[in-house]
Design a binder for these strands. Structure first.
Length: 838
DNA sequence: GAACACCTGGTTTTT
DNA sequence: CCAGGTGTTC
C-alpha cells in the first residue's frame, strides 16, 4: 500500500478525501512506495526539463502529485514556488486536493489552476502597465460574438459573407498563434477577404480595449505582452516559480507554450505531462507539435514514458491500441495492462437511433440489476457521443426506463438568459465602460429605450469619446436623444447608485447582488410574468445568489487560513490575498463566473448515469462506457473525412473514448439515423472497423433474432463498405423526444447546479436551491415562511392588505396581496419587506 | 415595441 | 428537425 492509499484509506479511484490526515511524508522512499519504476523516476527527477509521456490511465496524476510532494517535503522547495497548470478547473481542484493530502495545508500556497486562471491573477496585478484599468472584466463567448457582429456591421460588411462565427474563429486562431493585428494584416497581403477580417480584428480589439474588457484569448496574449515588455515583471515570476508543471501538455497552443517557456527560462525546471495520442483540441489552436518537439525545444530534457495502464481490461486496451496504431506521426508507445483480459468489446448494431437508445437503456437496466459484484451503480456508467445533439435521443429512453441520468455540457448555468442579464448588470457596475453589458441590459426589463434611442446613443457616445453609460448623462444636449433623456438618465442613475454602494462597501456580496436583482426590476418582471417559466427563472436568479454565498464563504475561509500565520519557509510576499472589499469580491466573483464551466461542478457521488461528449469525458473513467453513434459521417464527422489531419484527430478522439472504460465497453452504430429531420443510412465507423473482428462481440438490440448476415462466414458485412447499402427510408419523423427543456437538463428535470467557489470543495445543493442567508433590509420585516395565506400585512408604500395567495419559489415566495387602498399586487416576499399589521 | 412568420445553417469546447 | 436571427405587421 502506498502513501496515497494510506492517506485515503485505500481504494483505487483516489477521489475520496475523507480519512484521518496523516503526518506528511518526509522521505523519498515513503513517497514513492507503491509506484512503478517509471513513475518513481518521474517523481525523483532532480532538475531541468522533464517530459512525461503518459498513456491513458497510466497514473500520471499520481506521478505529478507525488512529484510535487517530493519537491516540497523532501527537497524543501517552498510551496509558493510551485506553479501547476491544468486544463480544467476540475482537474486543478483534484490536483490540489490530492497534493494537500500529501503535504498538508501549505498546499494552499501553491498556484494550481488553468492557464487562464493563473494569468488572470498576474494580470489583475500588473495590467495597468499595458494601459488597462485593473478593474477590467472578461467577456464571454456570447459577448465576443456580439462584438464581432457589431464590428462587421460597422465596417459595412455583409454578414452573409463574413459570418460571425467564422470571423471570430479566425481572430481567435490568430491570437492563439500570437499574431497581433499588424502581423495579421501583413499576412493578409492582397487577399481581400483576409484584409477585411484584419479590419474586423483591428476594430474588435479596439472595442474591447475601449471598454476595458478582455476575451479569453487576450488573457493569455496580454500575459505574454506583459512579460515581453516588462522583464522586471517576468523576472518576479520566474524567481518565484522555481518549478513549473503542466498537465495535458498535448492540448496547449502556441501562446501557452510561450508562457510556459518564458516562466521557466531562468531555472529550466519545467515538467510537462501529456499524451500525443490524446490531443483532441487542434480545432482550438492546440498543437501536438508542442509535445512532439519538446525534446528539440529543451535539448537537455529527460523523457519518461508511462505505459502501464491501471484502468482498463486488456480487451479494451487492445481495441484502443489497434485503433490508434493507424495514426502516423505519433510517438511510439504501447500501453499494457495486467488487470486481466476482461470481456470482449460489444458492438451494438441497432436499426436506428431509437433502437439504439432503447437498447442502451435496456443494457443499463440489466447491468444495474445484476446480483453480487457484477451489479453496477448508475454512477459507474457513462454514455458518450461525438455531438451534443445526440443526447436528446437518450432522454426519452432513459426516462421511460426510469433510469436517473444527467446530461453534461450544453447550456451552462451562467448562460441562462436571466442569469446572464444579472451578470451583465454586475459587469456594468464593476466596469462602467463595459459597453456590451450596457447594451444587453439597458432595456431589460423594458424601460422604453429601443433600437432607435440606442443607436442615437451609440452615435453620441462615439462622437464624444464616452462610454455608453456616461453618454446617457449628455442625452439632453443631443437633439436625437432629448426625448429619451429622462429614461437614459434614470438608468445611469440606477447604475451609479449601485456603484456608490459598491464603493462604500455597503453590504456582503450576495446581499449586494440581491439588491441589484430587486432594484433593477429583474425580479419584479419575472414575478409579473406569472407562469412556469417565470418561476424557473426566479429560481435561477436565486441560485445565482447561492453561488455568490459559496464564493463569500470560500473567500472567508481563505482569509481565515492566511490569518493562521505563515508556514515555515514561506514569505509574507507569497500570500495571495483574497479580495478585501466588496468591489474586489465582485471582480473575483465575475471572474469565476467567466472562467468556470458546468462540468467543473460534476458531482462524483450522485447516483446517475452520465451523458456527455467524448471531449468532456477526457480525463474521466467509468466502469462501463456506451460509445454511441459510432458511424461514418458522425464519428468521424463528415467534415473530417477528406482531411488526413482531421481524421487523425478524430481517431485520437475515438482512442480517448475507448480508454475511458474500465471494465465494459459498448460501441454502437445505428444502421440508419434521423438527423436534421432526415433519415440517413449509416455504416459503422471506420475506427470500429480498425478493431479486429475477433475482438468484438456483435449484438443487434431490438432484432427478433440474429440477422442471417452475421451467421455467414467471410467478412462480416458491416465491415465491408460495399455490402452496406445506404437505405433511404421515408422521412418518417419520430416525435421529438419529450425533452424537459433544452440544453443541460438532469434526469427527472433538475437543472444543473451552479459552480462552487474557487477552492471550495463543497458543491452547491442540486435540489431546489436553499435560500441564501441574506439579511432582510428592513429590521423586523417578515420572511417568506412567516407569511401565510389570509395574513394581514403592512407594506411601506401600498399600506395594509390581505395575502390572497402564496406561491413558494426557491425558498422565497411570490405573494398576491389585495391592498386595502392600492389594488392587488404580486410581490416577492423577501423584497416586499412586509410588516405584520398591528 | 411586441408578436409572429420566414429563413438559414448546423462539430467538438475550455477558458 | 430546431434554434436563433431577421423581417413584417399591427
Amino acid at each position: 500500500m502506498d502513501l496515497y492509499d494510506l492517506v485515503h484509506g485505500g481504494g483505487d479511484a483516489g477521489r475520496r478525501t475523507e480519512g484521518a490526515p496523516r503526518p506528511p511524508a518526509t522521505t523519498a522512499e515513503e513517497l514513492t512506495a507503491g509506484l512503478n519504476p517509471e513513475q518513481r523516476k518521474a517523481v525523483l527527477h532532480e532538475s531541468g526539463p522533464l517530459l512525461i509521456l503518459a498513456g491513458a490511465g497510466s497514473g500520471k496524476t499520481r506521478a505529478i502529485t507525488h512529484r510535487i510532494a517530493y519537491l516540497v517535503r523532501v527537497r524543501g522547495v517552498p510551496a509558493s514556488a510551485i506553479l501547476a497548470i491544468t486544463f480544467t478547473n476540475k482537474a486543478a481542484d483534484e490536483m490540489r486536493t490530492r497534493v494537500d493530502a500529501l503535504v498538508g495545508p501549505v498546499s494552499g500556497y501553491m498556484w494550481v489552476g488553468t492557464f487562464h486562471a493563473m494569468m488572470m491573477r498576474i494580470l489583475r496585478r500588473h495590467i495597468d502597465r499595458l494601459g488597462f484599468d485593473r478593474s477590467f472584466t472578461v467577456v464571454d463567448t456570447d459577448d465576443q460574438h456580439r462584438t464581432v457582429r457589431a464590428c462587421i456591421a460597422d465596417l459595412g460588411l455583409d454578414e452573409k459573407q463574413f459570418q460571425v462565427r467564422s470571423v471570430h474563429a479566425a481572430i481567435s486562431r490568430a491570437k492563439n498563434d500570437l499574431q497581433g493585428v499588424e502581423e495579421f494584416e501583413a499576412l493578409a497581403g492582397g487577399d481581400w477577404r483576409q484584409q477585411k477580417i484584419a479590419a474586423v480584428y483591428r476594430e474588435y480589439q479596439a472595442r474591447l480595449r475601449r471598454s476595458g474588457t478582455l476575451d479569453f484569448d487576450d488573457i493569455l496574449l496580454y500575459a505574454v505582452e506583459l512579460f515581453e515588455r516588462f522583464p522586471d515583471v517576468l523576472s518576479t515570476y520566474q524567481d518565484r516559480f522555481r518549478h513549473v508543471l503542466v498537465d495535458e501538455y498535448q492540448d496547449t497552443n502556441r501562446v501557452q507554450y510561450l508562457i510556459v517557456r518564458m516562466l521557466s527560462a531562468k531555472h529550466g525546471n519545467l515538467c510537462v505531462v501529456g499524451d500525443d495520442d490524446q490531443s483532441i483540441y487542434a480545432f482550438r489552436g492546440a498543437t501536438v507539435r508542442n509535445i512532439l518537439d519538446f525534446e528539440k525545444d529543451f535539448p537537455s530534457c529527460a523523457v519518461i514514458k508511462l505505459e502501464q495502464n491501471y484502468r482498463s481490461t486488456r480487451a479494451i486496451l487492445d481495441a484502443a491500441n489497434h485503433v490508434i496504431a493507424h495514426n502516423r506521426g505519433r510517438k511510439a508507445k504501447k500501453l499494457w495492462t495486467d488487470v486481466g483480459e476482461g470481456e470482449k468489446v460489444v458492438l451494438m448494431l441497432p436499426a436506428d437511433q431509437e433502437a439504439e437508445a432503447f437498447g442502451v437503456a435496456d443494457r443499463i437496466q440489466e447491468l444495474t440489476h445484476r446480483a453480487g459484484a457484477a451489479r453496477q451503480e448508475y454512477r459507474e456508467i457513462a454514455i458518450l457521443y461525438r455531438l451534443n445533439a445526440l443526447s436528446r435521443n437518450f432522454e426519452e429512453a432513459l426516462n421511460n426506463a426510469r433510469i436517473p441520468y444527467r446530461i453534461y455540457g450544453g447550456t451552462r448555468f451562467y448562460d441562462r438568459r436571466e442569469v446572464k442579464d444579472c451578470i451583465a448588470y454586475l459587469n456594468l457596475i464593476a466596469n462602467g465602460n463595459a459597453d456590451v453589458a450596457f447594451e444587453r441590459i439597458v432595456n431589460v426589463p423594458r424601460r422604453g429605450i429601443g433600437d432607435a434611442t440606442l443607436s442615437a446613443l451609440v452615435q453620441a457616445a462615439g462622437s464624444r469619446g464616452l462610454s455608453r453609460l456616461d453618454a446617457c448623462a449628455c442625452a439632453s444636449e443631443e437633439p436625437t436623444l432629448s426625448r429619451a433623456a429622462g429614461r437614459l438618465g434614470a438608468f445611469r442613475g440606477l447604475i451609479l447608485r449601485f456603484r456608490e454602494r459598491l464603493a462604500g462597501n455597503a453590504a456582503g456580496l450576495s446581499d449586494f447582488i440581491e439588491s441589484v436583482q430587486n432594484e433593477s426590476g429583474q425580479i419584479q418582471e419575472l414575478v409579473d410574468q406569472n407562469d412556469e417559466e417565470g418561476r424557473d427563472r426566479l429560481e435561477n436568479l436565486k441560485e445565482l445568489l447561492s453561488s455568490a454565498v459559496l464564493y463569500e464563504r470560500a473567500v472567508e475561509e481563505k482569509r481565515a487560513a492566511l490569518e493562521r500565520g505563515l508556514p515555515e519557509g514561506l514569505h509574507a510576499d507569497d500570500r495571495d490575498p483574497p479580495p478585501a472589499d466588496l468591489a474586489g469580491m465582485l471582480l473575483g466573483f465575475l471572474e469565476q463566473v467567466a472562467l468556470y464551466s458546468d462540468t467543473d461542478a460534476m458531482d462524483e457521488t450522485k447516483d446517475f448515469v452520465r451523458l456527455m461528449t467524448v471531449h468532456s469525458a477526457k480525463g474521466l473513467e467509468f466502469r462501463t462506457v456506451f460509445l454511441v453513434g459510432a458511424e461514418e459521417g458522425l464519428f468521424p464527422g463528415f467534415r473530417a473525412i477528406d482531411s488526413e489531419d482531421e481524421l487523425e484527430e478524430e481517431r485520437r478522439l475515438m482512442y480517448v473514448a475507448i480508454t475511458r472504460a474500465k471494465e465494459t465497453l459498448y460501441v454502437s452504430a445505428a444502421k440508419s439515423r434521423l438527423m436534421y429531420g432526415q433519415t440517413r443510412g449509416a455504416m459503422p465507423s471506420r475506427f470500429v472497423r480498425e478493431i479486429p473482428e475477433e475482438m468484438l462481440e456483435v449484438v443487434e438490440p431490438g432484432a427478433r433474432r440474429r440477422s442471417l448476415l452475421f451467421e455467414r462466414s467471410g467478412p462480416a458485412p458491416w465491415r465491408d463498405p460495399d455490402r452496406v447499402r445506404y437505405e433511404r427510408s421515408p422521412g418518417t419523423a419520430y416525435g421529438a423526444p419529450s425533452g424537459a427543456g433544452g440544453g443541460s437538463g438532469a434526469g427527472f428535470g433538475r437543472p444543473a447546479a451552479p459552480m462552487p467557489g474557487p477552492g471550495v470543495r463543497a458543491f452547491a445543493p442540486s435540489k431546489p436551491a436553499a435560500p441564501p442567508p441574506v439579511a432582510a433590509k428592513v429590521p423586523g420585516a417578515l420572511g417568506a415562511d412567516e407569511i401565510e395565506k389570509g395574513a394581514r400585512v403592512l407594506h411601506a408604500r401600498f399600506g395594509p392588505g390581505t395575502v390572497k395567495q402564496k406561491e413558494p419559489v426557491a425558498g422565497d415566495a411570490i405573494l398576491v396581496i389585495e391592498f386595502d387602498g392600492a389594488g392587488t399586487k404580486r410581490l416577492m416576499a423577501r423584497q416586499a419587506n412586509l410588516l405584520r399589521e398591528t
